[in-house]
Write a protein that binds this DNA or RNA. Sequence first.
DNA 1: CGGTCGGGTTGATCTGCATCAAGGTTTCTG
DNA 2: CAGAAACCTTGATGCAGATCAACCCGACCG
Lengths: 248, 248
Amino acid sequence: MLNEAQDLTPRECEECPIRHRAVCARCDAHELEKLDQIKYYRSFEAGRTLIWAGDRMDFVGSVVSGIAMLTQTLEDGRTQMVGLLLPSDFVGRPGREKAAYNVVAVSDVVMCCFRKHPFENMMETTPHIGQRLLEMTLDELDAAREWMLLLGRKTAREKIASFLAILGRRNAVLNMSEAAGQVVFDLPLTREAMADYLGLTLETVSRQISALKRDQVIHLEGKRHVTVPDFDRLLEEAGDDSDGGMLA
Amino acid sequence: MLNEAQDLTPRECEECPIRHRAVCARCDAHELEKLDQIKYYRSFEAGRTLIWAGDRMDFVGSVVSGIAMLTQTLEDGRTQMVGLLLPSDFVGRPGREKAAYNVVAVSDVVMCCFRKHPFENMMETTPHIGQRLLEMTLDELDAAREWMLLLGRKTAREKIASFLAILGRRNAVLNMSEAAGQVVFDLPLTREAMADYLGLTLETVSRQISALKRDQVIHLEGKRHVTVPDFDRLLEEAGDDSDGGMLA
DNA sequence: CGGTCGGGTTGATCTGCATCAAGGTTTCTG
DNA sequence: CAGAAACCTTGATGCAGATCAACCCGACCG
């Protein structure tokens, strides 16, 4: 269905859902106005490739709504996801001509795009933007490094548990720790996309999810709806270092 | 031997070997002077752990000479290297209280340390520092993502070949492509450290190096000195996507 | 309503790398 | 110079996860 109807595109920055978390988070009214002049919105439907690795990039931007993934491929087709883009995440690299990764919409996606050259110029003159971008990039680097540990050293079961824990933690924050550690969420990815994220095959993903279900670590309703009865149990399965993730 | 004699510590920024590549690369004479007031040098001998994950950090800084590694561990001891720090690379994260990773000296290391709070203050007022740090962080993020592809999807042989290719490329730049694609360098890491970098066991590293030697992809003199007779051949073995690495 | 297609599960089998084990070489040290 | 301690290599064996294959289910469509 082509319902471009249900439109999540914000009208103005003030009512933008990512206003206070994206690159523009620290901008004041004046700066926002300047950004406004070089920005435009684009929507993409689920499954679309927004950007192909190697393509010329004439914009950078923020994910406003939806989920996208960053992927890299070997020429024989082996694929690795190297980033999962959620609302407020930044796409593109100022100063770079060509895209380094494929960007694929997992769900329908709305992006707030900035024309690249004007944006680069603004970065020179507006420290707030660069500062925020530095913060966000450092966070992504931390995430990438945690992912390296997962890819290099964790077992299939631990990988799946870690992935579920990440999703769960994100949702726990939103749903404000509902009733006694019970955590509920939907898997945003297909088994194949999960496999590409975790460095596994889709069969192994499927098997390990079944195993976690069999062992009562999670409950499944349908193929996507997950309930975690005991989050600490899940964290143990993830094999993570003790405390389970400080936020700065 | 405790030869603290052969001292690589620079006297002043002007004669500092990393002056034009480190965080301070874009600073002018005035800014450099301010940095000078909050900096001090420290030396560490090979094998020393400079920083333990979880420790309070009261400084950030740059590697001046030597090589260090960033590692993460699971509580059962499995270790993954998540970064390799070469001269000019930055250590620590402004705004963060506690170290997120272990930092271990691979060779003897000299660091140029900045007291953390004054440095953070300077970042607020001196855009040149933040700009350069952003650039460097983006580069590291790219490297981390390339590493994710390697960890998640490459075979042991491809991993070793990729690692050798990275070392070789770095040296090719320095030695200015000596005679017809012949590339020569020393391995800076033990087999165990390579294993931790590549997500393998040290036995597998050893075997794959032997195999590449047997197949004439490389020559070995002793255990560390490598000659690559045909660099393109090595790149093929690395399985990398065609062109083999654009620099921006 | 039957056909197809994307997504998911499960079984059987194979294999690349881990694991366990032994021995070699070099450097340091008493 | 003997002994220990790093570091490295090579062999034998086992197993986690890949591969190959069959089938299920729900959504969509003519």
